[in-house]
Design a binder for these strands. Structure first.
Lengths: 207, 207
DNA sequence: GTCTATAAGAAGATAGAC
DNA sequence: GTCTATCTTCTTATAGAC
Protein backbone atom coordinates (compact mmCIF):
# COMPACT_ATOMS: atom_id res chain seq x y z
CA UNK A 1 0.00 0.00 0.00
CA UNK A 2 1.13 3.49 -0.93
CA UNK A 3 1.51 6.01 1.87
CA UNK A 4 -0.21 9.39 1.67
CA UNK A 5 3.18 11.02 1.44
CA UNK A 6 4.01 8.91 -1.61
CA UNK A 7 0.65 9.69 -3.16
CA UNK A 8 1.30 13.41 -2.72
CA UNK A 9 4.72 13.14 -4.32
CA UNK A 10 3.39 11.14 -7.23
CA UNK A 11 0.41 13.35 -8.04
CA UNK A 12 2.24 16.61 -7.40
CA UNK A 13 4.99 15.50 -9.78
CA UNK A 14 2.41 14.87 -12.48
CA UNK A 15 0.74 18.23 -11.92
CA UNK A 16 3.95 20.27 -11.62
CA UNK A 17 5.40 18.64 -14.73
CA UNK A 18 2.33 19.52 -16.78
CA UNK A 19 1.35 22.95 -15.52
CA UNK A 20 4.37 24.29 -13.68
CA UNK A 21 4.90 24.88 -9.97
CA UNK A 22 3.14 28.23 -9.63
CA UNK A 23 0.13 27.25 -11.69
CA UNK A 24 -0.70 24.32 -9.42
CA UNK A 25 -2.41 25.13 -6.12
CA UNK A 26 -2.11 23.03 -2.99
CA UNK A 27 -5.85 22.54 -3.22
CA UNK A 28 -5.39 20.95 -6.64
CA UNK A 29 -2.82 18.53 -5.29
CA UNK A 30 -5.02 17.63 -2.35
CA UNK A 31 -8.01 17.08 -4.61
CA UNK A 32 -6.01 14.73 -6.84
CA UNK A 33 -5.41 12.36 -3.94
CA UNK A 34 -8.81 12.78 -2.33
CA UNK A 35 -8.10 14.88 0.75
CA UNK A 36 -8.50 18.55 1.72
CA UNK A 37 -5.74 21.07 1.28
CA UNK A 38 -4.90 21.65 4.96
CA UNK A 39 -4.28 17.92 5.40
CA UNK A 40 -1.25 18.23 3.15
CA UNK A 41 0.46 20.15 5.90
CA UNK A 42 0.53 17.04 8.08
CA UNK A 43 3.01 15.61 5.57
CA UNK A 44 4.90 18.67 4.33
CA UNK A 45 5.41 21.99 6.05
CA UNK A 46 4.97 24.00 2.86
CA UNK A 47 4.17 23.76 -0.83
CA UNK A 48 7.82 24.29 -1.65
CA UNK A 49 8.75 21.35 0.58
CA UNK A 50 6.65 19.12 -1.67
CA UNK A 51 8.56 20.34 -4.68
CA UNK A 52 11.91 19.79 -2.98
CA UNK A 53 10.91 16.30 -1.88
CA UNK A 54 9.94 15.45 -5.45
CA UNK A 55 13.34 16.56 -6.70
CA UNK A 56 15.11 14.52 -4.04
CA UNK A 57 13.03 11.36 -4.34
CA UNK A 58 12.72 11.19 -8.11
CA UNK A 59 16.38 11.96 -8.68
CA UNK A 60 17.09 8.95 -6.49
CA UNK A 61 14.60 6.82 -8.42
CA UNK A 62 16.14 7.96 -11.70
CA UNK A 63 19.60 6.89 -10.58
CA UNK A 64 18.41 3.50 -9.37
CA UNK A 65 16.52 2.77 -12.57
CA UNK A 66 19.42 3.97 -14.71
CA UNK A 67 21.75 1.61 -12.88
CA UNK A 68 19.34 -1.33 -13.11
CA UNK A 69 18.59 -0.77 -16.79
CA UNK A 70 22.24 -1.37 -17.55
CA UNK A 71 22.67 2.24 -18.53
CA UNK A 72 24.63 2.88 -15.40
CA UNK A 73 26.12 6.13 -16.61
CA UNK A 74 29.30 5.32 -14.77
CA UNK A 75 30.27 2.15 -16.55
CA UNK A 76 30.91 3.32 -20.08
CA UNK A 77 34.31 1.72 -20.35
CA UNK A 78 33.21 -1.71 -19.23
CA UNK A 79 30.23 -1.66 -21.61
CA UNK A 80 32.33 -0.75 -24.62
CA UNK A 81 33.22 -4.32 -25.47
CA UNK A 82 29.59 -5.35 -25.53
CA UNK A 83 28.83 -2.41 -27.81
CA UNK A 84 31.67 -2.99 -30.23
CA UNK A 85 30.16 -6.42 -30.95
CA UNK A 86 26.73 -4.92 -31.62
CA UNK A 87 25.22 -4.68 -35.04
CA UNK A 88 22.92 -1.92 -36.19
CA UNK A 89 19.78 -3.78 -35.21
CA UNK A 90 20.90 -4.38 -31.66
CA UNK A 91 22.00 -0.79 -31.30
CA UNK A 92 18.63 0.45 -32.51
CA UNK A 93 16.83 -1.78 -30.03
CA UNK A 94 18.91 -0.29 -27.26
CA UNK A 95 18.28 3.26 -28.44
CA UNK A 96 14.56 2.59 -28.67
CA UNK A 97 14.54 1.31 -25.11
CA UNK A 98 16.38 4.36 -23.85
CA UNK A 99 13.95 6.56 -25.77
CA UNK A 100 10.91 4.81 -24.29
CA UNK A 101 12.31 5.03 -20.81
CA UNK A 102 13.05 8.75 -21.10
CA UNK A 103 9.73 9.50 -22.75
CA UNK A 104 7.24 7.25 -20.97
CA UNK A 105 8.53 6.26 -17.55
CA UNK A 106 6.45 8.56 -15.31
CA UNK A 107 9.25 9.47 -12.92
CA UNK A 108 11.94 10.03 -15.52
CA UNK A 109 9.72 11.93 -17.91
CA UNK A 110 8.00 13.88 -15.13
CA UNK A 111 11.28 14.93 -13.59
CA UNK A 112 12.62 16.14 -16.91
CA UNK A 113 9.48 18.10 -17.68
CA UNK A 114 9.32 19.63 -14.23
CA UNK A 115 12.96 20.67 -14.41
CA UNK A 116 12.38 22.08 -17.88
CA UNK A 117 9.71 24.39 -16.50
CA UNK A 118 11.89 25.56 -13.61
CA UNK A 119 15.25 25.76 -15.33
CA UNK A 120 15.40 29.56 -15.65
CA UNK A 121 14.29 30.27 -12.11
CA UNK A 122 16.86 28.21 -10.26
CA UNK A 123 20.48 27.58 -11.20
CA UNK A 124 20.63 24.34 -9.23
CA UNK A 125 17.68 22.87 -11.07
CA UNK A 126 19.17 23.98 -14.37
CA UNK A 127 22.38 22.18 -13.47
CA UNK A 128 20.47 19.05 -12.49
CA UNK A 129 18.57 19.02 -15.77
CA UNK A 130 21.82 19.36 -17.67
CA UNK A 131 23.51 16.66 -15.66
CA UNK A 132 20.80 14.00 -15.81
CA UNK A 133 19.70 14.38 -19.41
CA UNK A 134 22.75 15.84 -21.15
CA UNK A 135 26.08 15.33 -19.38
CA UNK A 136 25.55 11.84 -18.01
CA UNK A 137 24.33 10.27 -21.26
CA UNK A 138 26.97 12.16 -23.26
CA UNK A 139 29.74 11.13 -20.91
CA UNK A 140 28.62 7.52 -20.99
CA UNK A 141 28.63 7.46 -24.76
CA UNK A 142 31.93 9.26 -24.94
CA UNK A 143 33.51 6.51 -22.87
CA UNK A 144 31.89 3.96 -25.13
CA UNK A 145 33.29 5.51 -28.29
CA UNK A 146 36.68 6.08 -26.70
CA UNK A 147 37.00 2.37 -25.99
CA UNK A 148 35.72 1.20 -29.36
CA UNK A 149 38.04 0.32 -32.22
CA UNK A 150 36.55 2.79 -34.69
CA UNK A 151 37.85 5.74 -32.72
CA UNK A 152 41.41 4.58 -33.10
CA UNK A 153 42.32 6.38 -36.29
CA UNK A 154 43.43 9.95 -35.81
CA UNK A 155 41.57 11.64 -38.66
CA UNK A 156 38.11 10.65 -37.40
CA UNK A 157 36.11 12.75 -34.94
CA UNK A 158 36.98 12.69 -31.24
CA UNK A 159 34.90 10.48 -28.92
CA UNK A 160 33.34 13.65 -27.55
CA UNK A 161 32.23 14.84 -30.98
CA UNK A 162 30.98 11.37 -31.80
CA UNK A 163 28.95 11.19 -28.60
CA UNK A 164 27.34 14.54 -29.43
CA UNK A 165 26.66 13.48 -33.01
CA UNK A 166 25.02 10.29 -31.76
CA UNK A 167 23.07 11.55 -28.77
CA UNK A 168 21.93 15.05 -29.78
CA UNK A 169 19.53 13.83 -32.50
CA UNK A 170 18.03 11.33 -30.04
CA UNK A 171 17.53 14.07 -27.46
CA UNK A 172 16.16 16.40 -30.11
CA UNK A 173 13.47 13.92 -31.10
CA UNK A 174 12.71 13.26 -27.45
CA UNK A 175 12.07 16.95 -26.76
CA UNK A 176 9.68 17.14 -29.63
CA UNK A 177 7.74 14.07 -28.47
CA UNK A 178 7.57 15.58 -25.00
CA UNK A 179 5.32 18.32 -26.26
CA UNK A 180 3.74 16.52 -29.21
CA UNK A 181 3.04 12.91 -28.19
CA UNK A 182 1.46 12.10 -31.56
CA UNK A 183 4.85 12.73 -33.17
CA UNK A 184 6.31 9.61 -31.56
CA UNK A 185 5.72 7.30 -34.53
CA UNK A 186 7.55 9.58 -36.88
CA UNK A 187 10.28 10.12 -34.31
CA UNK A 188 10.81 6.36 -34.12
CA UNK A 189 11.27 6.29 -37.86
CA UNK A 190 13.82 9.06 -37.75
CA UNK A 191 15.52 7.38 -34.84
CA UNK A 192 15.95 4.25 -36.95
CA UNK A 193 17.30 6.23 -39.86
CA UNK A 194 19.66 8.10 -37.57
CA UNK A 195 21.09 4.89 -36.11
CA UNK A 196 21.35 3.37 -39.56
CA UNK A 197 23.19 6.30 -41.08
CA UNK A 198 25.38 6.64 -38.02
CA UNK A 199 26.42 2.99 -38.22
CA UNK A 200 26.97 3.24 -41.95
CA UNK A 201 29.11 6.31 -41.59
CA UNK A 202 31.23 5.36 -38.67
CA UNK A 203 31.54 1.57 -38.65
CA UNK A 204 31.83 0.72 -42.34
CA UNK A 205 35.43 1.74 -42.68
CA UNK A 206 36.58 -0.80 -40.10
CA UNK A 207 38.84 -3.22 -41.86
CA UNK B 1 10.86 57.11 -29.04
CA UNK B 2 9.38 53.85 -27.79
CA UNK B 3 5.69 53.80 -27.00
CA UNK B 4 4.43 52.61 -23.63
CA UNK B 5 2.85 49.65 -25.31
CA UNK B 6 6.18 48.66 -26.81
CA UNK B 7 7.88 49.10 -23.45
CA UNK B 8 5.33 46.81 -21.83
CA UNK B 9 5.83 44.15 -24.49
CA UNK B 10 9.59 44.34 -24.21
CA UNK B 11 9.82 44.18 -20.42
CA UNK B 12 7.06 41.63 -20.04
CA UNK B 13 8.81 39.37 -22.54
CA UNK B 14 11.99 39.57 -20.50
CA UNK B 15 10.16 38.81 -17.26
CA UNK B 16 7.95 36.02 -18.64
CA UNK B 17 10.91 34.36 -20.33
CA UNK B 18 12.90 34.31 -17.10
CA UNK B 19 10.29 33.57 -14.47
CA UNK B 20 7.29 32.20 -16.32
CA UNK B 21 3.87 33.74 -16.88
CA UNK B 22 2.25 32.92 -13.54
CA UNK B 23 5.24 33.95 -11.46
CA UNK B 24 5.25 37.47 -12.85
CA UNK B 25 2.63 39.87 -11.48
CA UNK B 26 1.23 42.80 -13.40
CA UNK B 27 2.68 45.01 -10.69
CA UNK B 28 6.14 43.69 -11.52
CA UNK B 29 5.70 44.51 -15.19
CA UNK B 30 4.43 47.99 -14.38
CA UNK B 31 7.34 48.60 -12.03
CA UNK B 32 9.84 47.60 -14.67
CA UNK B 33 8.68 50.38 -16.98
CA UNK B 34 8.07 52.93 -14.24
CA UNK B 35 4.28 53.12 -14.00
CA UNK B 36 1.62 51.74 -11.64
CA UNK B 37 -0.14 48.46 -12.27
CA UNK B 38 -3.61 49.85 -13.11
CA UNK B 39 -2.09 51.99 -15.86
CA UNK B 40 -1.27 48.83 -17.78
CA UNK B 41 -4.98 48.37 -18.39
CA UNK B 42 -5.01 51.46 -20.58
CA UNK B 43 -2.91 49.47 -23.05
CA UNK B 44 -4.09 45.89 -22.56
CA UNK B 45 -7.41 44.65 -21.24
CA UNK B 46 -5.88 41.81 -19.25
CA UNK B 47 -2.60 40.18 -18.26
CA UNK B 48 -3.21 37.40 -20.73
CA UNK B 49 -3.61 39.97 -23.51
CA UNK B 50 -0.05 41.11 -22.84
CA UNK B 51 1.16 37.56 -23.24
CA UNK B 52 -0.78 37.06 -26.46
CA UNK B 53 0.50 40.35 -27.87
CA UNK B 54 4.07 39.26 -27.10
CA UNK B 55 3.56 36.02 -28.98
CA UNK B 56 2.07 37.83 -31.96
CA UNK B 57 4.58 40.67 -32.13
CA UNK B 58 7.75 38.71 -31.46
CA UNK B 59 6.81 35.95 -33.86
CA UNK B 60 6.51 38.63 -36.49
CA UNK B 61 9.86 40.12 -35.51
CA UNK B 62 11.44 36.67 -35.62
CA UNK B 63 10.21 36.10 -39.16
CA UNK B 64 11.41 39.48 -40.37
CA UNK B 65 14.84 39.05 -38.85
CA UNK B 66 15.13 35.51 -40.17
CA UNK B 67 14.34 36.74 -43.66
CA UNK B 68 16.77 39.65 -43.43
CA UNK B 69 19.60 37.55 -42.01
CA UNK B 70 19.55 35.48 -45.17
CA UNK B 71 18.23 32.52 -43.24
CA UNK B 72 14.88 32.92 -44.85
CA UNK B 73 13.66 29.46 -43.96
CA UNK B 74 11.77 29.33 -47.21
CA UNK B 75 14.65 29.62 -49.62
CA UNK B 76 16.66 26.49 -48.98
CA UNK B 77 16.82 25.43 -52.59
CA UNK B 78 18.09 28.74 -53.88
CA UNK B 79 20.75 28.93 -51.18
CA UNK B 80 22.07 25.46 -51.90
CA UNK B 81 24.45 26.61 -54.61
CA UNK B 82 26.03 29.16 -52.31
CA UNK B 83 26.46 26.47 -49.69
CA UNK B 84 27.95 23.85 -51.94
CA UNK B 85 30.77 26.28 -52.68
CA UNK B 86 31.43 26.88 -48.99
CA UNK B 87 34.43 25.54 -47.18
CA UNK B 88 34.46 24.44 -43.56
CA UNK B 89 35.56 27.84 -42.30
CA UNK B 90 32.74 29.70 -44.01
CA UNK B 91 30.20 27.16 -42.81
CA UNK B 92 31.41 27.52 -39.24
CA UNK B 93 31.12 31.30 -39.46
CA UNK B 94 27.55 30.92 -40.61
CA UNK B 95 26.73 28.45 -37.85
CA UNK B 96 28.28 30.73 -35.25
CA UNK B 97 26.14 33.61 -36.46
CA UNK B 98 22.99 31.53 -36.29
CA UNK B 99 23.97 30.40 -32.81
CA UNK B 100 24.57 33.97 -31.62
CA UNK B 101 21.31 35.13 -33.07
CA UNK B 102 19.32 32.34 -31.42
CA UNK B 103 21.11 32.72 -28.11
CA UNK B 104 21.58 36.47 -27.71
CA UNK B 105 19.06 38.37 -29.78
CA UNK B 106 16.57 39.46 -27.07
CA UNK B 107 13.44 38.80 -29.08
CA UNK B 108 14.47 35.47 -30.53
CA UNK B 109 15.94 34.13 -27.31
CA UNK B 110 13.14 35.56 -25.17
CA UNK B 111 10.46 34.04 -27.37
CA UNK B 112 12.09 30.64 -27.27
CA UNK B 113 12.48 30.71 -23.52
CA UNK B 114 8.94 31.92 -22.95
CA UNK B 115 7.54 29.21 -25.21
CA UNK B 116 9.69 26.65 -23.46
CA UNK B 117 8.04 27.52 -20.15
CA UNK B 118 4.53 27.34 -21.59
CA UNK B 119 4.90 24.39 -23.92
CA UNK B 120 3.05 21.83 -21.76
CA UNK B 121 0.14 24.11 -20.94
CA UNK B 122 -0.89 25.04 -24.44
CA UNK B 123 -0.76 22.91 -27.58
CA UNK B 124 -0.62 25.92 -29.86
CA UNK B 125 2.42 27.31 -28.12
CA UNK B 126 4.05 23.89 -28.22
CA UNK B 127 3.46 23.75 -31.96
CA UNK B 128 4.89 27.24 -32.42
CA UNK B 129 8.03 26.36 -30.48
CA UNK B 130 8.48 23.26 -32.62
CA UNK B 131 7.89 25.16 -35.83
CA UNK B 132 10.18 28.12 -35.20
CA UNK B 133 13.13 26.36 -33.62
CA UNK B 134 12.90 22.81 -34.95
CA UNK B 135 10.89 22.35 -38.14
CA UNK B 136 11.84 25.54 -39.96
CA UNK B 137 15.61 25.23 -39.49
CA UNK B 138 15.45 21.48 -40.21
CA UNK B 139 13.40 21.96 -43.34
CA UNK B 140 15.72 24.68 -44.57
CA UNK B 141 18.75 22.49 -44.11
CA UNK B 142 17.03 19.51 -45.63
CA UNK B 143 16.46 21.51 -48.82
CA UNK B 144 20.07 22.58 -48.71
CA UNK B 145 21.37 19.03 -48.49
CA UNK B 146 18.90 17.78 -51.06
CA UNK B 147 20.26 20.24 -53.60
CA UNK B 148 23.90 19.61 -52.82
CA UNK B 149 26.03 17.18 -54.80
CA UNK B 150 27.06 15.07 -51.82
CA UNK B 151 23.56 13.73 -51.41
CA UNK B 152 23.54 12.27 -54.86
CA UNK B 153 24.84 8.82 -54.05
CA UNK B 154 22.21 6.40 -52.87
CA UNK B 155 24.05 4.72 -50.01
CA UNK B 156 24.55 7.93 -48.04
CA UNK B 157 21.96 9.25 -45.55
CA UNK B 158 18.83 11.00 -46.78
CA UNK B 159 18.74 14.81 -46.74
CA UNK B 160 16.35 14.60 -43.81
CA UNK B 161 18.71 12.47 -41.76
CA UNK B 162 21.60 14.73 -42.72
CA UNK B 163 19.71 17.82 -41.63
CA UNK B 164 18.97 16.22 -38.27
CA UNK B 165 22.57 15.10 -37.86
CA UNK B 166 23.75 18.62 -38.63
CA UNK B 167 21.21 20.70 -36.72
CA UNK B 168 20.42 18.64 -33.61
CA UNK B 169 23.89 19.07 -32.05
CA UNK B 170 23.69 22.82 -32.67
CA UNK B 171 20.29 22.97 -31.00
CA UNK B 172 21.50 20.76 -28.17
CA UNK B 173 24.36 23.13 -27.37
CA UNK B 174 21.99 26.08 -27.62
CA UNK B 175 19.62 24.63 -25.04
CA UNK B 176 22.45 24.12 -22.64
CA UNK B 177 23.71 27.69 -23.07
CA UNK B 178 20.16 28.92 -22.51
CA UNK B 179 20.29 27.79 -18.94
CA UNK B 180 24.05 27.95 -18.34
CA UNK B 181 25.37 31.10 -20.07
CA UNK B 182 28.93 30.46 -18.84
CA UNK B 183 28.96 27.29 -20.95
CA UNK B 184 28.99 29.31 -24.16
CA UNK B 185 32.77 29.26 -24.66
CA UNK B 186 32.90 25.50 -24.44
CA UNK B 187 29.84 25.22 -26.65
CA UNK B 188 31.59 27.30 -29.31
CA UNK B 189 34.48 24.89 -29.22
CA UNK B 190 32.20 21.90 -29.61
CA UNK B 191 30.34 23.70 -32.37
CA UNK B 192 33.60 24.10 -34.27
CA UNK B 193 34.46 20.45 -33.77
CA UNK B 194 30.99 19.43 -34.86
CA UNK B 195 31.20 21.42 -38.10
CA UNK B 196 34.71 20.15 -38.74
CA UNK B 197 33.83 16.49 -38.25
CA UNK B 198 30.62 16.90 -40.22
CA UNK B 199 32.48 18.41 -43.17
CA UNK B 200 35.17 15.76 -42.96
CA UNK B 201 32.65 12.96 -42.89
CA UNK B 202 30.26 14.11 -45.56
CA UNK B 203 32.23 16.19 -48.03
CA UNK B 204 35.54 14.31 -48.26
CA UNK B 205 34.24 11.54 -50.46
CA UNK B 206 33.30 13.93 -53.26
CA UNK B 207 35.42 13.06 -56.23
C1' DG C 1 -2.71 58.26 -19.94
C1' DT C 2 -1.48 58.14 -15.19
C1' DC C 3 -2.81 58.20 -10.64
C1' DT C 4 -5.20 56.51 -5.80
C1' DA C 5 -8.59 53.80 -3.77
C1' DT C 6 -10.82 49.71 -3.72
C1' DA C 7 -13.23 45.65 -4.98
C1' DA C 8 -13.39 40.55 -5.42
C1' DG C 9 -11.22 36.50 -5.40
C1' DA C 10 -7.58 32.99 -4.81
C1' DA C 11 -3.49 31.66 -2.73
C1' DG C 12 -0.58 29.51 1.13
C1' DA C 13 -0.80 28.46 5.71
C1' DT C 14 -2.54 27.86 10.83
C1' DA C 15 -5.82 26.58 14.82
C1' DG C 16 -8.28 23.53 16.97
C1' DA C 17 -12.20 19.97 16.99
C1' DC C 18 -12.77 15.13 16.06
C1' DG D 1 -4.29 12.10 10.19
C1' DT D 2 -8.28 14.47 8.37
C1' DC D 3 -11.63 17.83 8.86
C1' DT D 4 -13.90 22.91 9.02
C1' DA D 5 -13.16 27.58 9.91
C1' DT D 6 -10.29 31.30 9.53
C1' DC D 7 -6.27 34.49 8.78
C1' DT D 8 -3.28 37.06 5.91
C1' DT D 9 -1.36 38.28 1.86
C1' DC D 10 -1.18 38.71 -2.88
C1' DT D 11 -3.41 38.94 -7.32
C1' DT D 12 -6.08 40.70 -11.26
C1' DA D 13 -9.02 44.11 -12.39
C1' DT D 14 -12.26 48.34 -12.08
C1' DA D 15 -13.89 53.21 -10.77
C1' DG D 16 -13.26 57.64 -10.96
C1' DA D 17 -10.30 61.96 -9.96
C1' DC D 18 -6.76 64.69 -12.27
Amino acid sequence: MQSTREKIIQHALLLFSRKGYHTVSVQEIAQAIGIRAPSLYNHFHSKRAIFDAIIHDTTETYRQQAARIGLGWQSGRQDAQAFSGMDEKQLLTMVNHLFSWFLHEPTVSGLRRMLTLSQFEDRELAALLTKLYMEDPLHYQEQLFAAMPLAADSTSPSPKALALAFYAPIYFLLLRCDREPEYEDEARGMLAEHVRSFCMTYTKQEE
